[in-house]
Design a binder for these strands. Sequence first.
DNA 1: GCGACAG
DNA 2: ATCTTGTCGC
Length: 226
Amino acid sequence: MEPYETSLDVAEAVRAQSALRDQLDLTNSLGTAPEFVAGLDVSYEVDSRYAAAAAVLIELRTLEVRETAIAYGEVTFPYVPGLLAFREVPILREALGKLAGRPDVLVCDGYGIAHPRRFGLACHIGVVTGLPSFGVAKSPFGMQFVDPGSQRGDWSPIVDDGEVLGRVLRTQAGIKPVFLSVGHRVGLDQATELTLKMSREFRLPEAIRKADFLSREELRRRRRAG
DNA sequence: GCGACAG
DNA sequence: ATCTTGTCGC
């Protein structure tokens, strides 16, 4: 069974998710100094059927963009909370495949293991690419947490059923925090460190921000072209 | 049964 | 996610 074939219904997707979860590696395999991160994001047309995905490769040391890639196409799977990956992974992989450079780690707009079935978008992307990955989400997704301190770098645990699944992390003083969780082959401390490193100026990590802008720009460009 | 619900 | 104006603030 192909993990993301277009004909899956919700029940089949849940089963496919469960099968993929068996391949999840929660061990940190990032070295002390990863060099390149690829940020991923998807923007949708108004009809929510066609979308643009962006992959932005940035150099961690400088936060400068090294390379970008775009994919555009129809998204068939509906948005179902907990199954976002079945909607976004195919087009994200297409964008990723256009990158010539190889990222050391991927950052997704969404959740990793802080997920109802412990297997969010960042886990999917990590497992299917084999690359280390983690997720940075903008809203709680029903997760239980207490507000972290107001300073940059302050965090509090995301807990579900007594399990620590991630962190609510303040990336900018006095600004709404982000919701961090690991995807694949990355430790929570490493993901936290990378997120802070990439969020020097804004709430969201640069790689995700750039991917967001780029995918939106692609939609605008196509609208203007016809 | 009803509301909540990453993007 | 996306539809949307003005507005407050640096």
